[in-house]
Design a protein around this nucleic acid. Structure first.
Lengths: 396, 396
DNA sequence: CCCACTTTGTCCTCTCCCTGGAAAAAGTGG
DNA sequence: CCACTTTTTCCAGGGAGAGGACAAAGTGGG
């Protein structure tokens, strides 16, 4: 099947495509309610989109009291690939043009194996999704990587946890392999875009999206747009000092947030507690699996283990301290917490909230919701699909 | 004299006005080089601006090898009023349409005396500038206040250091008194706009502007636009925790940056040092003036007083700690340090730089200049003029 | 001083886009 | 079956803008 080649010819068409993407199929009249164009102009632009094949007719709409109108929708065969490369696993999903996830695969994988090995895996997963009949091909792909990205070129720069990736032409290489346009971004930014598109952050202009996984990062959305910073490293909050003269961190400093709380730090603290006999619950789990992860701590906490609860609370407090500073600085309308450790759930959330509300000024926190992301592991892939669709649905 | 009533009718005219404001008088042809309009269209829009009186002819331009062209410039009679209300003093300046400062007054005044008293003073100063022949009237005024502002309405909200101002309709009231449009913003945001317009931050899209005066605040510029936050309190970094379990702060918490370093904190530390006999230099000054301020510390440090130097270095280190966190988070292209304590100069700057470069990741700091603002007390008033001119030079 | 060439400013036409009205098409409900 | 509503198409007219032609003004060399 020939894939999408057309792009909107002007801003009006781009606007219409995005309306159809975000609101689903609808009639010309309904589109007209939202775009401030004359009926004739609207009809012309819709006709042109129909000609390009990006948009197709979709039956009759419900009557609003008069003549029923003909619906239009985005081409049902359009497929976007969303790829979320984490430190320890890869998520790949197919979406339709409305960014609904049609199929989603997850595979454990160490990002340190390098771009070549990882992309082999990603391509295999993409092929598998295609083979299962969900897609005949891909019209575009969004890729998230766990480190800073020089956004315009789609190239990772100086990524601390993925050394082999520095300067690897991710966008170029994947575009070649997949035969479609590709955009690359930091995984946290994509999570933010995902929650903005389909999660808790709909209709919020300025918000922060904190992702706590193997490391800690923060997506920053200003006026509806992701802020990436001058060198693409904005949101890199894992190495903000949380504890003066605290634990040494891989980055060379001491007391970094990430050294005190993150998936990796939590696992290490749990191991220590188990070995010191502080927590029978964790000790049992260590014996059973031979190792401990954040998931074990979550389970132990759920079972009421006080040591695990304490670890989570302490981590939440430290994270909350840092977030409090960011809230004072940035004054967001919403803070979303997500990532691998959301399994820690409300214990973590409560600790973070307590600390933020205590430490930030009332004006900034007065009406500030701090909530868990609602998309879980889908946030990243939906954000990735959104990234590429934003690109393709913009005038060339 | 009748003041400016016209506003640009469309985005093209707005663009032209801003070019003339920022680049000074120039010919139609030179304007054409920068706006991507056909010559005929450009001529039409310039003619319309000439009709409104916002723009006037200004003689012949130098030849570029052919026919000499006629220059145009913004109306030479346009006057903006820039007002910068600080915690302990008020700056008022008149500018022309190009935002050049034609006259500038400064008056000590305690903002806690309340809006009525302060505005009486401001109006007197504005009248004095007018009386000295610098202006026949004002076409617009920008006002900066030392606290959060609900920007669209131009009303201070919950300002910690200026209790009487909460909810006072600053914009409304001053607009009435001055008989011209008024815009209100936080003083730090205006300082950032000033440095962006005429100072060190020209041509930088994302930067932070730290103002250290009686308190500490931070202007945030993202993509050339000031970020004000959801409730107008963005940049309120004075109450970020710098020292865990540190000094009690007026806000109710402990260890706030402002409690440890600011004009007020520095004066208090200096007093303590003088009384404990740690610094003969400061003790002498205390005896001479009956009190100590940041200026005394600066002078003592310049004279080599080790205690004063130590205070400045320690303050710089703490400020640097906080800035390091903000740099990791925001990844700016520039950090500007300004405000009353810039008199502390390079000792302070060196301490801040050391701390930021040590604590933030190389990718974010690699090419990050940290510099003193170059406009001093003029930054605020220029920023204020810029604020109102941006407003008036936009389509209504 | 004349001439070739460059730059600038003006004029004019042609095209395209869009608005807004009119009318036709398609439904709803009594 | 009829009055009314909503949607869609069609059409004429106005307006804005691009772009070319040409006039005006200036430079520099012969």
């Amino acid at each position: 099947m020939r894939r999408m080649t057309a792009r909107p010819a002007n801003a009006h068409q781009a606007r219409l495509l995005k309306l159809l993407r975000d609101g689903g199929p609808r009639s010309r009249a309904q589109l007209g309610d939202r775009v401030d164009l004359s009926r004739s102009k609207l009809a012309v632009e819709v006709d042109r989109l129909l000609e390009t094949g990006l948009v197709v007719a979709d039956g009759l709409a419900a009557s609003r009291g008069g003549r029923r109108s003909h619906n239009v929708r985005l081409a049902p065969g359009l497929r976007f690939l969303g790829v979320d490369i984490g430190a320890t696993s890869v998520d790949v999903a197919v979406t339709n043009a409305e960014l609904e996830v049609l199929g989603h695969l997850n595979q454990p994988m160490d990002v340190r194996e390098g771009p070549v090995a990882v992309f082999e895996q990603v391509l295999a997963m993409a092929a598998k999704l295609r083979a299962s009949g969900l897609a005949e091909g891909y019209d575009g792909a969004g890729i998230g990587v766990p480190g800073p990205v020089r956004f315009p070129e789609g190239v990772p720069v100086a990524p601390p946890i993925m050394p082999g990736w520095d300067g690897f032409p991710v966008r170029e290489a994947l575009s070649q392999e997949l035969g479609c346009p590709v955009m690359v971004d930091n995984d946290v930014n994509l999570m933010a875009m995902g929650e903005q598109h389909a999660g808790v952050a709909r209709s919020v202009g300025d918000f922060l999206c904190i992702k706590i996984g193997t490391g800690i990062g923060c997506g920053i959305v200003v006026g509806g747009e992701v802020h990436r910073g001058t060198t693409g490293s904005a949101g890199d909050i894992g190495h903000i000092q949380a504890v003066p003269d605290g634990r040494p961190c891989a980055c060379g400093n001491r007391g970094c947030l990430e050294a005190h709380f993150s998936g990796a730090a939590l696992a290490r603290d749990a191991l220590e507690a188990a070995q010191q006999g502080l927590s029978p619950e964790l000790a049992t789990r260590l014996e059973a699996n031979g190792r401990l992860t954040a998931v074990d701590v979550a389970a132990a906490a759920a079972a009421g283990d006080p040591t695990s609860l304490g670890l989570i609370r302490q981590g939440g407090t430290r994270t909350g301290q840092v977030i409090a500073g960011l809230v004072s600085f940035f004054n967001p309308g919403l803070v979303v917490i997500g990532g691998g450790v959301t399994g820690l759930g409300h214990t973590l959330l409560a600790a973070i909230r307590t600390q933020v509300y205590r430490q930030s000024l009332p004006l900034a926190t007065g009406n500030l919701p701090i909530v868990l992301g609602e998309l879980g592991p889908k946030a990243g892939v939906i954000g990735a699909a959104r990234l590429i669709s934003d690109h393709l649905f913009s005038p060339a």
